[in-house]
Amino acid sequence: MMEPLIVFDHLCKFYQMGDETVRAADDISFSIDRGEFVAIVGKSGSGKSTCMNIIGCLDVPTSGRYLLHGADVGSLSKNELAETRNKMLGFIFQQYNLLPKLSVLENVEVPLMYAGVPRGERRRRAEEALERVGLIDKRKNRPNQLSGGQQQRVSIARALAGDPPVILADEPTGALDSKTSREVLGMLQQVHREGRTVVLITHDNSIAVTAPRIIRLEDGKVVYDGPAHGRNALVGGEEAAG
């Protein structure tokens, strides 16, 4: 059997808020195989953001282990974390997080630049990624000249450009209307069909059901882990996009 790509092994993350200890992630265990499409769902304060930060190698667990592609992320240095983010992960954020002073094409090139890809190849790969999201003709524009949906597509292109095994989407439709939301989700499904592992973080059940598998968090614990159509999969979720 193939080793899972993402493994949470009794993972805990505690924060100190004054005298109180916040258990943002409390003994979470799950594993995600290569090529899966998983939605991590929960209300605000459920610990989903903490999970997303840890999966994204932006944060390290207090205890337990997080294995990404077999490597224990908790033991990596800051430089190795940066390298892992660059090579293993493609981020899609709610607020797109494009760099306003750079052109669309340059934005897509950023992760490739940090990966040390030479200029010519970088350009070619970034253009390829933009072509895939249908924005090649906007490559010279600034992000603020694009609509929200277009900006989010640019950020998908940026996530894909480095060809990472994991795509991590944090409320990717949070700032979009329902039509463009469907477009973006369709694109994520497309990415998944091409064989990438997609992790979708959302508070919205209607978005979460895009993924075949749902992991539901409440108060830092996993309360459901199974298929999207299973009983209880949607229990406790919010019904509509907030």
Binding site: G56, K78, A82, R85, K87, N97, P111, Y114
Partner: peptide, 16 residues
């Protein structure tokens, strides 16, 4: 600050 955060998320090292 936000730009720095984005760059770091995308793989920029401290040294960079």
């Amino acid at each position: 600050t936000r730009e720095i955060g984005i760059r770091k998320a995308l793989g920029a090292k401290e040294r960079t």
